[in-house]
Computed example of a mutant assay.
Amino acid sequence: MPDITVLRTGAHGTPMSEYAAALRDRLPEQDIALARTPADERELVADARVVTGCDIDEDLLARAQELELFAGAYAGYEHLPLDAFQSRDIAVTNAAGVHAPSAAEQVLGYVLTFARSLHEGWRRQQNREFRHYQAYELKDSTVTVVGLGAIGQGIVKRLQGFDVDTIGVRYTPEKGGPTDEVIGFDDKALHDAFARTDYLVLACPLTDTTRNLVDREALDTLPPESVLVNVARGGVADTDDLVSALRSEDIRGAALDVTDPEPLPEDHPLWSLENVVVTPHTAGQTPQYWDRLADILATNVPRLGTDEELRNRVA
């Protein structure tokens, strides 16, 4: 039976064969099996020390009697049966950092799009309309990044050289960060920061603290020339409040890679607002995804059974 079992499907139903191949390159001494059917999964997890994939239900987990590590292929892990893992002392890791470069680059693209009003230029191109419009400069702006994990830090790094002021928001502000200023989720500190923010970037997990963080009160606090950028989860911003603020131009615009609901229904008003850019949850997509994910697991397999901390351990 295999040492490592790769479950059959990845994000959006994509096959995991590329991931399995990357693991075989990095771990040639390990027997790595790719499950191609549900029956394969049930058989191949039985004696595997490591199972890796996007999801696993409790029935399949119960069959994995020798399991020491579940290596999640997503950055998010709230969908996993964490209590069941904990009760059996099975380690869980995630894919945090794998898509940090692509997500950070996408954020920079959004910010520059609104700084130079490129979305308006694109619209006028479609109409073959050669007429000037208002553009801005990113220089001397204040960018607030909510979440200073791998993606948030990648965003801040890429903003260096643009002569902007940066504010970071994290649960533990005493840890500091790469931004000019770091604050916590205290309402007063947060709204003081929002009041001087030109670009508000959401790059945080969806938790009880961050759910609907950008609500009517927050949107009223942001300056009218500000832009919201969301590559976190749709639920971090209250959709109804956001639509209202965009319609009334209480903020200048929004770039949304994630929405609530998702997928965004065809008749949703966000599609038709000219001050909104919507992309279909593509910030994390990168050709390097499986190679980077395989690097994490290749680092962790030799650490199993030792006192070394597993990379990206979340449970």
Rank of each mutant, 00 (worst) to 15 (best):
F194C: 05
G161Y: 03
T179L: 02
L219F: 12
L190E: 07
G161C: 02
D140E: 15
T172C: 00
V156A: 13
D220M: 06
V214M: 11
I167K: 08
F162L: 01
D165M: 03
A203M: 09
T207W: 13
I151W: 00
G177H: 00
G147Q: 00
E217T: 14
F162V: 05
L213H: 12
P173A: 03
D208L: 10
K157E: 15
K139M: 09
D180F: 10
E225R: 14
E181V: 10
L219H: 09
R196M: 06
P205I: 03
L219C: 07
I155V: 13
D208Y: 05
G147H: 06
V146R: 08
D180H: 15
V201I: 14
D215C: 11
R196P: 04
T221I: 00
C204V: 12
V182I: 14
V146H: 10
A203F: 07
T166S: 09
D187C: 01
V143C: 10
R158Y: 02
S141C: 14
G152T: 04
R216E: 15
D140C: 02
N212K: 14
V182A: 03
D180Q: 12
P224W: 03
P178W: 11
T179K: 02
T197H: 09
R211M: 10
D140A: 14
V145S: 07
Y171W: 05
G149K: 06
T142S: 11
